[in-house]
Design a protein around this nucleic acid. Sequence first.
DNA 1: TCCAATTACTACACGGCGTTCAGACTTGTC
DNA 2: GACAAGTCTGAACGCCGTGTAGTAATTGGA
Lengths: 238, 238
Amino acid sequence: MGEQTISRRARLRAETTREIKEIALRLMADGGPDAISLRAIAREMGMTAGAIYSYFPTRDDLITTLITDVYTELVDRAEAARDTVPETDPGGRVIAWAQAVRAWALANPEGFRLIYGDPVPGYQAPEGGAASEAEHRACAGLTGLVAAAWPRAGELHDGDYRWADFDPGLVAQVQEEFPGLPPAAVALALRVWGRMHGLVALEIYGHLSPLANDPAAIYRAEMRDLVRSLGLEPPAEA
Amino acid sequence: MGEQTISRRARLRAETTREIKEIALRLMADGGPDAISLRAIAREMGMTAGAIYSYFPTRDDLITTLITDVYTELVDRAEAARDTVPETDPGGRVIAWAQAVRAWALANPEGFRLIYGDPVPGYQAPEGGAASEAEHRACAGLTGLVAAAWPRAGELHDGDYRWADFDPGLVAQVQEEFPGLPPAAVALALRVWGRMHGLVALEIYGHLSPLANDPAAIYRAEMRDLVRSLGLEPPAEA
DNA sequence: TCCAATTACTACACGGCGTTCAGACTTGTC
DNA sequence: GACAAGTCTGAACGCCGTGTAGTAATTGGA
């Protein structure tokens, strides 16, 4: 055994925890977010529902963990997509981010609902939001996209903002990553966020598709306009 | 009796139906959308849960009815707000519509979730959407706002669209109300819809407020920019 | 090596939910 | 007055999250 004494128990525990989350995500993908029931998960694992309480103190904690995992995956995708475009093409990086978000949402609609909707019957997010770290990463990423368009983007949008208008944690992160950037850039980043979110949310929740049979084209047009409104050049193709 | 024979029964039925919906809305406002349970409604009415099945064939039908009512109210508000601004100020009409939507959403967050989110545990919207009529009215209203900015707005936004790209019912309504308007205007209206929806959705679902303590200012800036992107002048004040 | 503590789990119970069904009671129609 | 339709009760079924008592296994320390 030796230094492996922490092993058997801890390893099994980690493995079981992973399996619970994996099954929960599969159930969610199959039957919607409200198919995540402790009893269903336990059934799939050949356990009783009560056993899950050894791993998560309550169902909401499980959901919160899932949200964190899923949100982190989404942000990873967005960052990765952005980084496939060179920094010499800031407009292309915005488009890449936006398209990655939509593509992920369409591929994982239940995940999108989990993050941005009412995930599950009586779920109450913990204070500070369910996945504040991932959310901060997302906002920082968007602020970075705006920062790459600065100061031209700032000239195109008025508004009077102070650092105190925003979450201190986010402010600290932004000030460290992008020194010299004014608070108005954060406000603009949040607006960009909203603009990317709107059409995707409408589409995922089934409001857009019945009305327009090519939501991708509408989203593409909107994102290209967004890029232009930042004073950037949208990429030539697509 | 006479021609009133249809009365007693029918009147009671209508009254009970109204009461069910009213209590459901109150429960939703108090405890969130998932507080709408047939048992809770029946409890408040001094009835058994099964009795409700005389009025709605299933819980989802009740929810669908609620969505229709609530959505209709929202559209009424938006149209009314728009019409407080003269047609000589098309930019002001856009702003009025946008602010009415956000104000209504903040005053009725559960209603907003009911319309645009996962309303309730296992709710499945009927085909064609839960409140397609209200949704068509909303889109027609937005198309009207865009139409008032035409053809200047069209010059600012490229894109190649055909009538076949959109829902036939909506197309018919638009072609009748705004003859001569090209299909690109509908695409732009849907983009406007998404742009209005995004920030409000983020705010209602608690993603924006933790990060920015003045969401109203951000929304206002975004809507003013939206008006400008339509080639219109945003109103001077506020 | 054996003991005590921790952990993982089962079995059962509680109250909540939507839904169904048989029966009772009321209302309207011939 | 008879018969049908509508309205409601009460009990049941099978879901759900959660708590609790008890059992079996694993672990760390004496």
